[in-house]
Amino acid sequence: MQSASTDIAERAIGIIDQLKGKEGPLLPILHELQAEFGYVPRETLPIIAGALNISRAEVHGVFTFYHDYRDHPTGRHVLKLCRAESCQSMGGDALADRARELLGIDWHGTTPDGAVTLEPVYCLGLCACSPSAMLDGEVIGRLDAERLEEIMTEVRL
């Protein structure tokens, strides 16, 4: 029987081999690994470095620089709350506190039932509709406490 680590490595090699010939292949490879696994498994970073003939430090630096890459699986839903100044000035801090309270988790945490991962994001580009959030890739403007509670009910089902 094949181990999970071997399966991950084999699937990652397939993705890397497909994309390593592109110009500037590192970001597309990281993107595809995250699409495949829901996160970028740490054990794939040295494989990427070897295939692209770059240092592990360079791969790690790019991986950790971009906030959208994850090193662990997320919940079934990902709720991102904007933490930028516009959203903060329009009540975003109180909404963030309430979301963490309702979910019982802190930033980057996932609820014990695996339903929701809560992440901060620094600007969704909806400053005119502050405070804003993103749920599973769909933006939500003019978020208020009532809508936040509705979202929490939806994602916990």
Rank of each mutant, 00 (worst) to 15 (best):
A133Y: 02
S132C: 10
V40K: 02
R70Y: 07
I48S: 02
P131V: 06
P41R: 02
K80W: 15
R156C: 06
Y66N: 12
R142I: 09
D68W: 11
G109Q: 04
L102F: 08
T6K: 08
H67K: 14
L19V: 00
G24N: 13
V139K: 13
I47C: 00
H72I: 12
R56P: 08
Y69P: 01
L79H: 10
G109S: 06
D144Q: 08
G92M: 09
V121S: 11
I16F: 02
I13D: 14
S130K: 05
E119F: 12
S89F: 15
E32I: 05
I48R: 02
G14H: 05
H77K: 12
S89W: 14
L81Y: 01
G61P: 09
S3F: 05
R11D: 06
P131I: 05
C127Q: 06
L102Y: 04
Y69K: 01
H60I: 10
D136C: 11
G61K: 13
T110N: 11
P28Y: 15
A35N: 12
L103W: 01
Y122S: 14
G104P: 09
I48G: 00
L124T: 02
G137A: 09
L103K: 04
D93A: 14
V59E: 00
L79K: 09
Q34K: 08
I47K: 05
Q88I: 15
N53G: 03
G141A: 13
P120F: 12
R156V: 02
I13Q: 06
M1D: 09
F65E: 15
A12L: 02
G24Q: 14
E146Y: 08
Y39W: 06
L52H: 00
G109D: 09
E85S: 15
A115V: 13
L135V: 14
C129D: 15
Q18A: 14
E10P: 04
V78I: 15
E10V: 14
G114P: 10
W107E: 09
K80P: 10
D136L: 07
L81I: 15
A9T: 07
G137K: 10
V121M: 10
G75S: 07
E32L: 03
C129F: 15
D97S: 14
E10K: 14
Q18W: 10
P25K: 12
Y39A: 04
A115D: 12
E36P: 04
D106R: 07
P131K: 06
M134V: 07
L95P: 05
C123R: 03
P41I: 00
E23L: 04
A133W: 03
P25A: 02
G137Q: 08
E146N: 13
L19M: 11
P41K: 00
L45Q: 01
